[in-house]
Nucleic acid binder design. Structure first.
Lengths: 333, 333
DNA sequence: TTGTACGCGTTATCAT
DNA sequence: ATGATAACGCGTACAA
């Protein structure tokens, strides 16, 4: 019995000698209460240590002031940046976040959607690569306003935030060859990297095929240590290369492996990180990276969600374009 | 009107031609239902797309299956690791996390405690430097089982997880001088670093005073860029030093500044990070760091909380001792 | 200004 | 096995 002794509004009313309706009015500052009774009620509230039950309030008003957030295991820096952004504005707007984390399986993501629905949240923000459009529409069919990140989805109560990675990557590659880039490019694929990775890989392949350049794709694990070892081996026989890695830590593994083998970055080995964070700038040599400020994305998505909840979201779609930060891991051409 | 059209248990009952009590039994698999009616009810549930309201369930059962988590702005790597750990076991145990983030102010942390209480959570995990013991006891007086991280607190429904940083740091310092360490040590203080930092600084000072060694304390901003610039200036006139920094990014700022000025790490400048993450190992030169696996801390705290909720937590206190990972940013002595 | 009574969507205790 | 009905803690028309 968790809250056996929870003080209820009724007990406050009794102790203050008024009805529970009056107490409710005081709590919600609705006025229509005499100064005297208000003070009396407020005093007893303090004396009894009464705190309204958010549950009961939510049930009565049909508003939970809760936002459901579906994200993959919050262990990547860019995910935690996103979360920080969401949390920032949620706090100032008086919302509480309910966290639902998924781990690379559509099944689990689906069960999280179920949970979000039963959770009675006022809205949801979804950033999960595994979900299909129809999965998201399911949550929408329960009329839960939803912002979907990194997936184009249209719907009544759905807004989306999109990343224009492919275009930027495509131009980046073209420009590389145009300016005389002579190393063959290698795309470093990560197991279970999700759709953002796949889309980038596709763009990588298509761009190369379009301009008639040879390319390469390598698989690696989503672990710094293993990737480091793999590339340490790799660089025994391969002394040159231009690598496009998904994440900073992958890029760092390649860079460190190259350096430790005795190769020069960027002279021998060039590296680009696709989803750059602040660490791309801290690592040495600093790593050229495509970068989207995920904290801004988080803030934006929360603002959009609030508008969606209030029915005044005009543009249901917003695009973030990654910035290309050229640093020391690539040669300036 | 958010969920105007939410399907209720009553509507299911009506559509299935049974009473809502029967539907409730089916949902909760309580048996005492004919195979035929069960199938019938399950069919209508699916047909109507009914999802029970977690709110109403929580209100009726006095169990929300929600855990309140109070942490500082989830933007540090070690915080997001902690969160990932909590989230891991919460998920497998069927709990949802409600996130309450604070930002370096006791006042805000207090208001978050209020929110946790109104939130009707089944338990709470608190990791916040600003809170006093009495603040935490407040949440406990509402009989919310609570695990407090990084603060020694005793109470009926309170457990705590402690970090033994001071001891380890103290021994580390002693051993440094014993083995002939000749650089003067400098503790790099961060504004608003919280109590963990303060405690470490205190241990740093006391150890030096006890063994009669001179020391130094420097202030810096909690920003990689500013700290980098500050130390870039600093190293114009100071060509040697042994720095103990709070965080990896601070340590990296010092290391990069030293390197960029032309100093050698670790020959001229040695650096230790107090709260190391995986990045301490990725940065070059790799950074010697004290390290606590925050993901493990998160998991442990969640396990302890569940035991606390079920009234069978035997040891109400658990200690994590940081590992000292000696790497390339210090000289092996 | 204040109080009464009903509804929010469940669970659970009774009868039947 | 099934069905009324009273909680759970609160908001809110409506009446007084």
């Amino acid at each position: 019995m968790n809250t056996k002794d929870r003080v209820t509004i009724y007990q406050v009313a009794q102790a203050a000698g008024v009805s529970l309706a009056t107490v409710s009015r005081v709590i919600n500052k609705q006025g229509n209460v005499t100064e005297a009774t208000r003070l009396n009620v407020e005093e007893t509230i303090k004396r009894l240590g009464y705190k309204p039950s958010g549950l009961a309030q939510a049930l009565a008003t049909n508003k939970s002031t809760n936002i459901g957030v579906i994200i993959p295991n919050a262990n990547y820096v860019y995910i935690s940046n996103l979360l920080a952004g969401i949390s920032d504005v949620a706090k100032t707007k008086g919302f509480v976040l309910s966290l639902f984390t998924t781990s690379h399986s559509r099944e689990e993501a689906l069960s999280m959607i179920e949970k979000v629905i039963t959770s009675h949240v006022d809205g949801a923000i979804i950033f999960d690569d595994e979900l299909d459009a129809e999965d998201v529409m399911k949550i929408n069919s329960y009329s839960v306003p939803t912002i979907v990140i990194n997936k184009k989805i249209i719907g009544d109560k759905v807004g989306s935030i999109l990343f224009s990675y492919e275009d930027v990557l495509s131009k980046f590659i073209e420009s590389y060859y145009k300016k005389g880039g002579d190393k063959q490019m290698t795309f470093v694929h990560v197991h279970d990297g999700g759709r953002l990775l796949s889309r980038n890989e596709k763009a990588f392949r298509e761009t190369h095929e379009r301009i008639g350049q040879k390319y390469n794709v390598i698989n690696c694990d989503d672990s710094y240590t293993r990737t480091y070892h793999d590339f340490y081996e790799y660089f025994q026989n391969n002394k040159k290369g231009y690598f496009i890695a998904y994440r900073d830590s992958i890029a760092a593994a390649i860079e460190n492996a190259a350096t430790d083998v005795g190769l020069k970055v960027p002279e021998d080995v060039e590296i680009v990180s696709l989803v750059g964070t602040k660490y791309a700038n801290i690592l040495r040599p600093s790593i050229t990276a495509l970068h989207i400020n995920m904290q801004e994305v988080g803030q934006r998505s929360m603002y959009m969600l609030i508008d969606l909840i209030n029915n005044d979201l005009v543009d249901k779609s917003y695009r973030f374009e990654p910035l290309v930060n050229e640093r020391s891991s690539t040669i300036k051409r």
